[in-house]
Design a protein around this nucleic acid. Structure first.
Lengths: 299, 299
DNA sequence: ATTTTGTTTTTTATCTACAATAAACAATTT
DNA sequence: AAATTGTTTATTGTAGATAAAAAACAAAAT
């Protein structure tokens, strides 16, 4: 097989889920735009819907005959892009306890394990290498550098430089900038979360990500944005598998966020700097405490 | 062809250049280590030297019969790794005047132009994307973001954050750290350069790179190191083709470096910070002035 | 005239194959 | 016994092929 049609399947599921009997569907380019795919793919979806008898399709007449049934959808596992599959497999692997720093990474073995070709794995590893967790010796293997204390410290250092910079930028945004509105929304969400914290404290990490992303976007700097992407991915997997984070730590973070937001809203650069530093210092502690125990630096 | 034997050819040239008639050669592993290749490649080199009658090779007896002649070496252009070839081609292309921001990049076209397969080009583009000059839309083309004013400003911002951080680290290095010795050497090279500046001012950019690399290494942070790699490559090509830099600007930079070095040697963190900022501000100006004229941001 | 659909072409994403290189294993020599 | 050479195996780097997806072009409909 040269390529899976996961783009089609995923978009099909997305589109089918929104159909209701009797509905008339818009033009092909409009459908394509709404799904964020090309018109070719949109047509393939219509074609499939027509074959299944869900839509009666004749040129510009497109009428939904019935709501799609469960069996009309493609199974979830067929809709994931290869990149996502590889990413998940790989992250699970390197966060597993046996993945000690220094371990060699074998492209062919990894490809076989995931059930894919070597090219895709290679490309993934090249992309992933920017996160600083793996390293390549040319003409030879990749080495896992791992989730070590050093990694966490280096990450935290850069994160602090970038966030202090971004927060200062944020404080200087003009009052009519939409970021202030979004900040207010995020602030409200923090209060909502606190109301039922025992049940919902696990939702904090998603909120945390959105909050910091908003701040970083204020800097309008592609290098900062890219770095934050990396952080977000690493944190995403890290916290997903490493459940060692405590409820109380999250609660403290929520309050730090609220102080930080208040400082931002005050536009007082010195206060922003102070609140930002306070939060980052405790975020650093959280990161260090969540490190796997084995992973101590080799050299 | 699956793969060029450029590793072999390049190592062969390197090894052959160091041979003298009558010399006895060391063991295979030792040769391999010295050339930084595998023993397999080292043996291939010995084998070729033997075929050419340059070395008489019989098990552990390896005697150089004659010094290699010009025609024994592989031509320069056969020894470049594919990665380097693609990098050079690509950089020449995006620094050419007609490469306006927003231009699409076509993998197949690029591969044909360079005379290579698409896989290598793809991998190169993925690696290169970390420099922020190109961007990909999934399932679609790469876009050249280009050497714009925005790019230069974002680069300069991050560079300043990192260098201030690294310089502060440097100032706190213990006196017995070898970095101080290297700093003294680089300082001396600055004075040597000044003595005959009219003839040698073009050597400044290499010295500049080594100086800043030394500073950045003090931070011992992989993200800072990676970023500096990116900067170095971009500057390398940028200055190579864009000769708009003036002799006087280089001379000013040399004196700023010397002030900066003096500040470092004083271990006075405030003085270091001051000298570093001064130099970075003028480096930022130099970068901005060397931008191609066309490349102004689209949006 | 502009939008929409029908059709063809281009380009990307991915697999497979294979030579170059590295690495491992076995036999030999000091 | 340790280092060195001889031989085999494993792994990477790269080309080429092909289906999916995007993009371009052409015809038809409002």
């Amino acid at each position: 097989m040269a390529r899976q049609n996961t783009v089609f399947k995923e978009a099909f599921n997305r589109y089918a889920a929104a159909l209701d009997a009797g509905q008339a569907l818009p033009s092909e380019p409009e459908i394509a735009l709404g799904l964020n795919v090309s018109r070719s793919t949109a047509r393939a979806i219509l074609s499939r819907l027509s074959d299944l008898g869900i839509v009666q399709w004749n040129k510009r007449q497109k009428v939904v005959l019935r709501r799609p049934a469960d069996e009309d959808f493609y199974p979830q596992e067929e809709t994931d892009s290869l990149h996502d599959i590889i990413e998940r497999s790989f992250m699970r692997r390197i966060l597993a306890d046996d993945a000690a720093p220094g371990t060699q990474i074998n492209e062919l073995e990894l490809a076989r394990e995931i059930g894919t070709g070597t090219t895709s794995v290679r490309e993934f590893l090249i992309r992933f290498s920017r996160f600083g967790l793996i390293e390549k010796r040319p003409n030879s293997h990749w080495t896992l550098k791992g989730f070590t204390r050093d990694f966490a410290l280096e990450l935290a250092d850069v994160r602090e430089m970038f966030e202090l910079h971004s927060a200062a930028h944020f404080g200087r945004l003009p009052d009519d900038n939409p970021a202030w509105q979004r900040l207010a929304e995020i602030k409200a969400e923090h209060y909502t979360l606190l109301e039922d914290f025992d049940a919902r404290f696990r939702d904090f990490s998603a909120l945390d990500e959105r909050f910091h992303l908003l701040i970083h976007k204020a800097a309008r700097n592609r290098f900062i944005a890219d770095f934050y992407d990396a952080i977000a991915i690493i944190f995403h997997y890290h916290y997903q598998w490493n459940k060692a984070f405590a409820r109380e730590r999250n609660e403290r973070a929520v309050h730090e966020h609220l102080d930080y937001i208040t400082a931002l809203e005050s536009r007082d650069l010195a206060a922003i700097d102070r609140a930002c530093r306070l939060h980052l210092a405790s975020a650093r502690q959280t990161l260090l405490q969540s490190l796997p125990q084995i992973a101590d630096e080799a050299g």
